[in-house]
Design a protein around this nucleic acid. Structure first.
Lengths: 202, 202
DNA sequence: GAAGAGAGAACGAACATTCCTTTTTTTAGA
DNA sequence: TCTAAAAAAAGGAATGTTCGTTCTCTCTTC
């Protein structure tokens, strides 16, 4: 037998997924051709089809990684943290941490994942799972604030969590469309809305 | 000469755009084939290509109408209105008014428009224009609240407007992915966050 | 030397678009 | 008012391209 070391197999797979990710971010899942991916990966068709059985397979793997990135960004906030709720955007989008701080590219890919989820029921299922899990994490964060009297307790924590998560999604849309999306200004706006003492940005 | 009444020409154009809209919502811009559109519109290729010079032309027209829908939803809130800020989602998404209340379909199409804007610079430009205009409208709404002391005045109104608009976008994502997205529960969550008197949903 | 890994030509299907034909409609002349 | 010519509108087969995928052959690695 002449099986190559599996580290090399995994490296090849990664090489393909990275190339595909670039192409998909640049042109979307369906406007990207296999030839585009092959060229970007500097590999032949025969090579790529040894690691993925179809283009849809590559799309699914790319989308799954994007969702995993989101999930881990939320999971990292699970512990009993230093939570100012108006910091949640920074917390989740990771000003210092790696996860979603890949900035514009991750946001752009996530928008594409949303739109692909509208036509792929399996992707839609995964997306809903991630959202449900995140709602739980953020919901318990909200509940702790309610117990401490920092938030009105007469509203279900999950409803507040939905609003906070919608804020994150809306922020990601802005980050995807414009390149920057100033999280400090965003946090400022949140503070004002929450009637908390605000610090002026400029 | 034998030119048909222009009302019929416009009806044909509408028929094509409606069919294309359905297809695009169902399958996305680039996974929808011309044949799909022709079948849905119950027209031949020759007929459709008399009204649109290319598929990209149909995509552009569909996206432009979606953005116009968003723009008009925000413009309708321009007057000195009955504005509770936490009602903005209902206001903009139109619980009673027509604009974006087309519910899931409009939200799904808008997500596709976002993702298409990532690869079409002309669409990206139009999207930014609509966002900028909406920011102005919502910003002046915020400014009025600040003048009345309902919001901290030491934060630029536009920063608060950005947060509110991000909320709307996030809500639309939920409405696109799930079908429903309960706006009453969402408003409830906003009230809690804003420390305003909350009404319990259940 | 055996077999996995990769290259790249080849394939059929599907694609957007065009082109020619047929049908339908409007208008002008009688 | 009816008819005929003309032109527009629609149909649908045809076209050339591009797509995703496969197949065969060569090279590389254990």
């Amino acid at each position: 037998m002449a099986r190559m070391p599996k580290e090399h197999l995994e490296a090849r797979r990664r090489q393909i997924l990275d190339a595909a990710r670039h192409c998909f971010i640049r042109n979307g899942f369906h406007a990207t051709s296999m030839q585009d991916v092959l060229t970007e990966a500097e590999l032949s068709a025969g090579a790529v089809y040894r690691y993925f059985k179809s283009k849809d397979d590559i799309i699914a793997a790319t989308a799954a990684e994007a969702l995993a990135e989101v999930a881990s960004a939320f999971e990292a906030d699970d512990g009993a943290r230093p939570p100012d709720l108006d910091n949640i955007v920074d917390l989740v989008l990771g000003v210092e941490r790696p996860p979603l701080s890949g900035s514009q590219e991750s946001a752009q890919l996530l928008v594409q994942v949303w739109s692909e989820a509208l036509r792929s029921s399996s992707l839609s299922t995964k997306l809903k799972e991630v959202m449900a899990e995140a709602r739980g994490v953020v919901g318990s964060l909200v509940a702790r604030h309610q117990q401490r009297g920092l938030l009105p307790a007469d509203v279900p924590a999950e409803q507040v969590a939905d609003v906070l998560m919608a804020l994150v999604d809306g922020f990601l849309v802005r980050r995807a469309v414009y390149g920057h999306a100033d999280s400090a200004a965003f946090r400022n706006g949140m503070r004002a809305l929450m009637s908390a003492p605000a610090q002026v940005t400029r």
